[in-house]
């Protein structure tokens, strides 16, 4: 079953085209990343999946059902962690989670157990009776997540859940995303932090100006923008090293020698690592340091758009 399927989805706000012919398919069990700068259209895409806003053109299926016909069924099975923390500051953490879970029809013992489970999951069990007005930013973010998972949705959507919090809380949240996925939920994760998306997502769409500009696994995406592999080798002295000999190794495209560091660029699909190391060993030149440069999603975005993800 496809969890989400978007076909030629277009959404306008007046003159602004928030989504421009978006096509997406999300499989069951994925942690699907939507990566893009502010204003790319991530929240708009999510709002449409949740049935919060209408759209101008295209089709949207969630759990193989048409969002325009089966909104209620779809909504029942989604849990959303909104971009802005959406909780009641004067109600206790427990009451917050309980309220939202009740809206999904949970009651009685099941309600109580699931609420406790959700608070436990985000590590707020001991704060259950306290009001979020007194919480730190990270704790509020965690409660924001708890409110979305107590009804055990098939699909959990997290819209920039780590904005504005300390690294420790961020790691906690990233870990919990993986755990929720292992427990059986499909996840859609939006962010403009490429490190996060790289770290947890199985597949990624890169969005910009309402368009999906690239889609695939992290490896697929990085190989799109670069067909080379770069190695930096630091040695004691460059005496006895001949550029021509290095260039003679299979797959090597380019060699640059600067001070005591040699930069070797090879074709990506040729594995010549052994040969390069062997060259230095055979010359009896000790290697002091070795660094392999892997292109990241930032590079991908930069290459595709000419801009950085975060300006």
């Amino acid at each position: 079953m496809k969890i989400v399927r978007m076909k030629d989805l277009t959404k306008r706000f007046g003159n602004i085209i928030a989504l421009d012919n978006v096509n997406l398919e999300i499989e069951e069990g994925e942690i699907y990343g939507l990566l893009g700068p502010n204003g790319a259209g991530k929240t708009t895409a999510i709002s449409i999946i949740c049935g919060l806003i209408s759209f101008d053109r295209g089709e949207v299926y969630v759990f193989d059902k048409d969002i325009r016909k089966d909104a209620e069924f779809i909504k029942k099975n989604i849990g959303i962690v909104p971009q802005d923390v959406a909780i009641y500051g004067d109600l206790t953490a427990y009451e917050n989670v309980k309220f939202f879970a009740s809206l999904y029809g949970l009651k009685g013992k099941e309600l109580k157990e699931n609420v406790e489970m959700a608070l436990e999951f985000v590590g707020l069990s001991d704060k259950a009776k306290e009001v979020p007005n007194k919480f730190s930013g990270g704790m509020k973010r965690r409660l924001n997540i708890a409110c979305a998972i107590a009804h055990r949705p098939k699909l959990i959507i997290m819209d920039e859940p780590t904005v504005g919090i300390d690294p420790q809380s961020r790691n906690h949240i990233l870990e919990s995303v993986k755990k929720l996925n292992e427990m059986g939920s499909t996840i859609i994760y939006t962010s403009h932090y490429m490190e996060e998306v790289e770290a947890i997502c199985t597949r990624i769409s890169i969005m910009d100006h309402g368009k999906v500009i690239a889609e695939g696994t992290k490896e697929e995406l990085t190989s799109m923008v670069t067909d080379v592999n770069t190695v930096y080798i630091e040695i004691g002295s460059i005496d006895g090293i001949k550029e021509e000999e290095l260039k003679g190794i299979k797959g090597v495209k380019d060699v640059e020698i600067k001070d005591s560091t040699i930069k070797i660029t090879s074709l990506k699909d040729v594995s010549n690592f052994d040969d390069i190391i062997h060259y230095f060993i055979s010359k009896n030149i000790p290697i002091r340091n070795l660094r392999n440069e892997i292109p990241d999603l930032e590079t991908v975005f930069l290459t595709l758009t000419g801009r950085k993800l975060r300006d």
């Binding site: 919060l52 802005d84 959406a86 999904y104």
Partner: peptide
Amino acid sequence: TKKTGRRILASPV
């Protein structure tokens, strides 16, 4: 202001 309205509307209510 608390953005909870969106959350309520995303539920099946």
